[in-house]
Design a protein around this nucleic acid. Structure first.
Lengths: 96, 96
DNA sequence: CAGAATCCATGCCGATACTG
DNA sequence: CAGTATCGGCATGGATTCTG
């Protein structure tokens, strides 16, 4: 659970689930509101926990690509369940 | 998601899923390591969000019973998915 | 028993500026 | 482009004491 803690991890993972490979700037754009420092930190966390891979591409200037590992892809169903809980929760409140 | 934030909420909800009704002291015992202040605060949060009910029983001395609402019971599947993600995650790391 | 009050440490997170 | 450095606010959470 601490592996997925932090304000932005689910958002980042969700974005990577939809996009396969993304560069730092892409993520900075897609994950609305995140500051470079936080993005950097969350990415490092998740790389340490082997949820994502970080590959340097030696272009000029260099770019870095982030992608989900197989382990990282397992969060897909979890995010789905989280979303469907949200609706189930609202429904339960509504029908009571 | 902020509804379920906090260090102890899942633990408390899980305990209530197994027990139907519990008093404050019971929860203090069952949720290992939690301080009364935190238990009180988390319970208030969850009562506000209508995940649990709080009923005062006028015994001497008074006791208070906490139980899940219908909305609260919807976290069951979510906790299951969380648990099975844990194993899926470990499995993915192991087989790589 | 069920909590409220108080005090306090840590660290999460944000904004901004800077670097190779 | 892909970050790091620095500063600082504010919330989170812990320990302890007190109350009806």
């Amino acid at each position: 659970m601490e592996i997925l803690s932090g304000k932005w991890k689910f958002h980042i993972l969700g974005t990577l689930l939809l996009n396969e490979k993304l560069r730092f700037m892409d993520l900075l754009r897609e994950v609305e509101g995140i500051a470079p420092k936080m993005l950097s930190k969350e990415l490092q966390d998740m790389e340490m926990n082997q949820l994502i891979t970080r590959t340097i591409v030696h272009t000029k200037p260099i770019t870095v690509e982030y992608a989900l590992t197989e382990a990282g892809k397992t969060v897909g169903p979890l995010i789905d369940e989280l979303a469907s809980w949200g609706t189930a929760y609202r429904n339960a409140l509504f029908h009571q």
